[in-house]
Write a protein that binds this DNA or RNA. Structure first.
Lengths: 126, 126
DNA sequence: GATATTGTATAGTGTCTGGCGACAATCGAC
DNA sequence: GTCGATTGTCGCCAGACACTATACAATATC
């Protein structure tokens, strides 16, 4: 499972991992019922402690995306999060778009990038 | 200056504030040369300590968006951030879009929302 | 059942966040 | 120019958080 973490990213590691897995689920690379690698394996790959990955899994379980089972592994249990605050989602989107603007990207380029990302997200939806 | 903070948002307050101000600058509501309200005023409005707001201002100064002057206030000093990691920006965008997908929004609606947000961002650019 | 594999719990360490109070720089009235 | 008001800064503290190491518990495999 291709996950990376970033030193310069100010989010905690466990949340970076959780967000990456969310991305994999969103774009259908991880589908309902599929097993995730054991926490120790991911932890070794990334060079962090197993508890850090376990925290990420628990986070996703709390949101209803994973079913984590003591002794066996973790499974993708849904491709939908239960209740999601719409305002929160928009705020995050707005913030990331604002950063593109502040980076100096012109409007057409931003539109281009966004469309490309959306395309990637729905690539596997047929 | 209309800023809000959100208890349920897991980002620290000072970063929420910094991001909101970034948004105001990005969409041109705060323009270069304009003064920001004193840290005490913002702090009182939001019910937090002045140091929390000061931390937000310092954050923005570090990114080159503000000029903070001891004794006088803080000014918007640019509408561009100096160096910005492109990969980081895309990652944030990707994450926020993924969350929309996981919330169950259909592709057309996501496109709609994104276009609306982009429009808002460039509303004042003529 | 024994052993390996997998997630969980606990405890320790360092960092981050946010509050309080004192300090320092600047401004404005006079 | 001085003084008071206004503004940002600093040092310290308490609590929460992030991450690690190690021991424990549940499940799978044989």
């Amino acid at each position: 499972m291709y996950i990376t973490i970033d030193e310069s990213d100010r989010r905690p590691i466990y949340r970076q991992v959780a967000d990456e897995i969310k991305g994999l689920i969103a774009r259908g690379e991880l589908r309902e019922g599929m097993a995730l690698p054991p926490v120790r394996q991911v932890a070794d790959d990334l060079g962090v402690n197993l508890n850090t990955i376990a925290a990420a899994y628990r986070e996703l379980q709390k949101e209803g995306l994973l079913k984590v089972r003591h002794g066996s592994g973790a499974l993708v249990s849904a491709r939908r999060v239960a209740q999601q605050n719409d305002a929160e989602l928009r705020k995050a989107l707005r913030a990331s778009l604002a950063h593109l603007v502040l980076a100096g990207l012109p409007r057409p380029e931003i539109v281009e990038i966004v469309n490309e990302e959306i395309r990637q997200l729905f690539k596997r939806d047929r």
